[in-house]
Design a binder for these strands. Structure first.
Length: 217
DNA sequence: AATGGTGCCAACCGCGCTATG
DNA sequence: ACATAGCGCGGTTGGCACCAT
């Protein structure tokens, strides 16, 4: 069964956005807020696909975006988060305020990969290049799935978290996507999944999602 | 100055997940 | 329980800018 196209391609613009299109999108979202991307283009008078509008807003027009070069601290944080999360760019972006997943993905592919290679580190495994071949299985074990939790003796993920912190002792995994202050009330007994901000994940073992949902309302 | 190569980044594409009827 | 719609994500691509020759 085929999937219906997200928009009528024959009647949509593609390619680079014009200033006028940007202005229309910004003013519409300011007036009506984000959401309902499918109907947004028509409502905003844009000949664009909803996905395209969403991408443009998230990656370029959002007012809280931090444009400009990445700092050395951001570099190191990205490297560490990538070693833990892999190519989960949206999760990594959640740890870097003002940065988007697309921006981080591009930055990784253009700068950090090369930087790691220059250090003699395999960007895929975060192991020395000559060990990379044997390290693949090690890296895949650092996930946050149920299987991993079964392999550990701790139901709250503390063993898993400990092993990661052995590799990245200065990485603060208590970070959260938002809002940080509310998180403090519930993070006492968080599993590893929740410590990464994935409160609604099916892999959550501490069932804190309900509490977080309540707190966010 | 012209040309070709390379790097970078914005944008697109296709798929998976979730919500809803 | 199932089908469909919509959203979000990760991978890929197109085109522009810059640099070397």
């Amino acid at each position: 069964m085929g999937r219906s196209p997200c928009c009528e391609k024959a009647h949509t613009n593609k390619g680079a956005w014009t200033k006028e299109e940007d202005d229309r999108l910004i003013s519409y979202i300011r007036a009506h807020g984000e959401g309902c991307w499918r109907s947004l283009p028509k409502a905003a008078g844009l000949l664009r696909c909803g996905k395209s509008c969403r991408l443009r807003w998230i990656n370029y027009l959002r007012p809280d975006l931090k444009r400009g070069n990445f700092t050395e601290e951001e570099d190191e944080l990205i490297i560490k988060l990538h070693s833990l999360l892999g190519n989960k760019w949206s999760l990594i972006a959640g740890r870097l305020p003002g940065r988007t997943d697309n921006e981080i993905k591009n930055y990784w592919n253009t700068h950090i990969r090369r930087k790691l290679l220059n250090r003699g580190i395999d960007p895929a495994t975060h192991r020395p290049l000559n060990e990379a071949a044997t390290a693949a299985t090690v890296t895949t074990n650092i996930s946050f799935g149920k299987q991993e939790q079964q392999e550990t003796s701790s139901s709250n993920g503390s063993v898993v978290k400990g092993s990661i912190l052995e590799r990245c002792p200065d990485l603060n995994l208590e970070l959260t996507i938002s809002p940080p202050r509310q998180q403090q009330q519930t993070q006492k007994n968080l599993c590893f999944v929740c410590s990464l901000g994935l409160h609604n994940s099916k892999d959550c073992s501490c069932n804190v999602s309900n509490a977080v949902t309540v707190n966010n309302t």
